[in-house]
Simulated scan of single mutants.
Amino acid sequence: MSSAVATVRLQSLNAGSVSSTHLAECLAVDFAALLQAVAPTLPQASMQRMRAAAGKGITQRMALAAALLREAGQGEAQHWQAHPSDSVRGWACYLIGGDAQAALTDKLQAMRPLADDAHFGVREWAWLALRSDIVAGPLEALALLQPWTQQRSRHLRRFACEALRPRGVWATHIALFKQQPGHALPLLEALADDPERYVQDSVGNWLNDAGKSQPGWVRDVCARWQSTHGSAANTYIRKRALRSLQRRTVHLGSR
């Protein structure tokens, strides 16, 4: 992945002096080099552990970086959450998420500025870092995030939906919402006509996730919304929600 990023640019990313501009840059960052640059007093044993983890997935390395900072007494998330590097701000997310002494409500409060970060990657790390807490208590998380659907920031409204998706590319699945997605209907209803495409995509993806295990429920919701929500936003959400089910129907019909 690093070969797709210019050498000089990669040096700046690894030094922590700039933020990435796209996913390829995010994935190209050498975490060991970045950790050495931003936390040079870390023990060499910690640096060796990060170098040894180079072949692991990025979510594992994000969590490891946060753990190494915490072990070295540098685990105060506020110290890192305004750093120029989006990767370092992502470590701050994992410092918050990995705090075994904090309740989910406190973690969400601490995560708000990172969930509203200007960088797309940090906003994703913000919910991924809380995913284990959310999987462990999905109904509590749902209740805590329902008010976020009314926030002025589109980032926070999206976070409320994205953090609770039944599935997800890099995320542990939420078994309850895969089998009983109706629990989240009040949250989805609150965002059913959201004017921001960034939020609409998340709502559509949430329903598309649910459709893989509860297709009838998703079809029923979309059919009802078609008669009760006349906005262009909802039309777009419904189309996105049904895309996998429609492809499946076309595929079956072609047999």
Rank of each mutant, 00 (worst) to 15 (best):
G98H: 01
D99M: 05
A118H: 09
A192P: 03
D116H: 11
L252Y: 02
Q179L: 15
W225C: 09
S46K: 04
Q146W: 10
R158W: 00
Y236R: 15
S87I: 15
G204P: 07
T172H: 12
V122T: 13
A223W: 00
W80G: 11
A4W: 11
Q200A: 11
L35F: 08
G55Y: 09
V218I: 04
L144C: 07
L114D: 03
R152C: 05
A63G: 03
R224V: 12
S132F: 03
Q226C: 09
L64Q: 02
G97P: 10
V122I: 10
V8I: 10
Q151W: 00
V5R: 11
A241Y: 02
A77D: 12
E196I: 06
K56V: 05
A184K: 00
L27Y: 01
R167V: 09
R158A: 09
Q179P: 03
M62H: 14
G98L: 10
A184Q: 00
A33D: 14
G168F: 15
G98N: 03
W127P: 00
A33W: 00
K107G: 03
R247V: 10
E162R: 06
S46V: 02
L185P: 01
E140L: 15
Q246A: 13
G57F: 07
A223H: 05
D220H: 14
D99F: 03
G137C: 10
F159V: 01
Q226A: 15
L145M: 15
A77K: 00
L164D: 01
N208K: 14
K178D: 12
K212W: 08
G211W: 09
H229V: 11
Q151S: 13
P195D: 06
Q180C: 07
A67N: 03
A63K: 13
A82P: 00
H119A: 08
G253S: 04
A115E: 01
L191A: 06
S17T: 15
A53E: 08
T105A: 15
T149P: 06
A72C: 09
A53R: 10
S254L: 13
R238W: 04
T41C: 11
